[in-house]
């Protein structure tokens, strides 16, 4: 369509010009209504009564406590899940054993469990009425309605992210480089840090990025286990719900703006990784 001389000779492997225009128009229209408008609404609603008013709501001690808790929970759960992802990818891609496919299905399990059901599982496991929970409460370390519960629920929800990104990448890369290092006498950790890590670093960063975005934004599972105690177990998404239900719209949307900005930063970094290091990411994340 950019070559005027060829305009009348449409290649057999494309659609007619009018059809392309309709499809592109349809896509842009629907995405505007479904994606872009809600995103803009977050910023617009937050700024309804001016920037100063919006920023004022963030100085509230409960709001600051929620921001601190969200950062703390992500700082604990994301590195632990990254460690799990690396270990699982190593065990699955560097060795041959029976039941790998079943193991991958188990790792993927949290993706098909409702966040609310995940929260319920932890309430049953660690709640004051359960054997483990009763003992923990007696020992002065409650999990449910406390920060540890928020951490484990977040870990459950974000559990597959890093493993899912690393396993296909490491399968594709094979074992030849590690085996070469092994025959040259390198130790296990040396092989890992000098051979494997440089090969998987961008895929690892990609997985960590998605894991972190989900960890900071998790709502359903955390809502169930945290008890939503203001200033203690309320994360940013829970604070948004409470403020919204109290008709403190500007405060709710200001808090939401912070998380929307996090989402935008995540998407930008993710796209940058996809464009720059496409060959080092899992096939499903290259476009």
């Amino acid at each position: 369509m950019t070559h005027p001389t060829l305009a009348t000779f449409r290649p057999a492997t494309t659609e007619p010009d009018w059809m392309r225009r309709i499809l592109i128009g349809l896509v842009i229209a629907l995405l505007t209504v479904l994606l872009f408008a809600p995103l803009i609404a977050v910023f617009a609603e937050a700024g309804k009564r001016g920037l100063a008013f919006a920023l004022q709501s963030l100085t509230d001690p409960d709001a600051q406590s929620a921001i601190r808790l969200t950062l703390t929970v992500a700082a604990i759960s994301v590195p632990l899940n990254a460690a799990f992802g690396i270990a699982a990818a190593w065990a699955i891609t560097k060795f041959d054993w029976r039941g790998k496919a079943f193991m991958i299905t188990l790792i993927d399990l949290p993706f098909s469990v409702s966040p609310v059901v995940a929260g319920l599982c932890f309430v049953l496991l660690f709640g004051a009425n359960s054997a483990i929970g009763g003992w923990l409460v007696a020992a002065g370390h409650p999990v449910i309605f406390a920060v540890p519960g928020v951490v484990v629920a977040t870990m459950f929800i974000t559990f597959p992210f890093v493993a899912r990104e690393l396993i296909p990448v490491m399968t594709e890369q094979g074992r030849a480089e590690e085996e070469a290092a092994l025959t040259l006498g390198a130790s296990g950790w040396r092989i890992f840090f000098t051979v494997t890590v440089p090969n998987i670093r961008w895929a690892l960063l990609y997985g960590v990025l998605l894991c972190n975005a989900r960890a900071m934004g998790e709502f359903g599972a955390v809502a169930v286990v945290s008890g939503k105690i203001r200033g203690q177990t309320s994360t940013m998404p829970l604070m948004i719900e409470m403020l919204y239900n109290e008709y403190l719209s500007v405060a709710a949307f200001t808090m939401a703006t912070l998380l929307a900005l996090l989402a935008l930063v995540t998407l930008t970094l993710k796209s940058a990784l996809e464009w720059r290091f496409a060959d080092q990411l899992a096939a499903s994340s290259r476009h």
């Binding site: 998605l210 939401a256 929307a260």
Partner: peptide, 10 residues
Amino acid sequence: ALPTAVAGIA
């Protein structure tokens, strides 16, 4: 990437 609670209120 967008937390579900943010999507919900938006």
